[in-house]
Design a protein around this nucleic acid. Structure first.
Length: 187
DNA sequence: CCCTGATTCGC
DNA sequence: GCGAATCAGG
């Protein structure tokens, strides 16, 4: 792919709208975000300001090694690795799970206001779910709860979450629905 | 880890 | 001019 006037136009427009280089690259197709960024610079619109030539204060020399220091590195002091740490909460007899009085129970929109597609993908995803426990959750893992917290049969989706979002793609779909979509669907 | 943009430099 | 590799920051 090459930078045809047409593609450059899209690039300019999107960059102007504040889209990220990767988004633009995805939109254009056939190019990587690096290509986009490179082009952006060559076009001289790296500085997302439009007007007069800014006052270029301190570009500062980023002193590049110039060569390719692909040498060894990374001492890697060995990780301590997570430790149980808290021996708290001894399994007292019948104690099951004192699910701190759950009132909120996240999203879980009533089925009738979830788009069919989204609902379908969720069910699909729940089969592939990694079924993580609270402890295993991290950023980047979907925190969509599945099942009843008061039961043994409770886990979190755990699939790769969308950047910035707390859920995976499928769950983001049912969690963040446009207001309009919900109203239109509501009975 | 994943993602952003910024830079350099061989092609 | 192009963009992969790499850097630097979130």
């Amino acid at each position: 792919m090459s930078w045809t006037d047409d593609r450059v136009e899209v690039l300019k427009k999107m960059w102007g709208e504040g889209k990220s280089a990767s988004q633009i690259a995805k939109e254009l197709g056939g190019v990587t975000r690096n290509a986009v960024i490179g082009k952006v610079h060559r076009l001289g619109l790296s500085n997302r300001s439009g007007g007069a030539s800014a006052a270029k204060a301190a570009p500062a020399a980023k002193a590049k090694p110039a060569a390719k220091p692909k040498a060894a590195e990374k001492p890697k002091p060995a990780e301590p690795e997570a430790k149980p740490a808290a021996p708290v909460n001894k399994p007292i007899g019948r104690t099951k799970l004192i699910v701190t009085a759950g009132q909120p129970l996240p999203p879980q929109p009533s089925a009738n206001e979830i788009s069919p597609e989204a609902l379908a993908s969720v069910r699909e995803v729940e089969k592939k779910a990694k079924k993580l426990s609270v402890m295993e959750l991290t950023e980047r893992t979907c925190k969509w709860p599945v099942g009843d917290p008061a039961t043994e049969d409770f886990w979190f989706c755990g699939l790769p979450a969308q950047q910035g979002k707390p859920y995976c793609e499928a769950h983001v779909g049912v969690a963040f629905q446009p207001m309009s979509a919900r109203r239109d669907r509501r009975r």
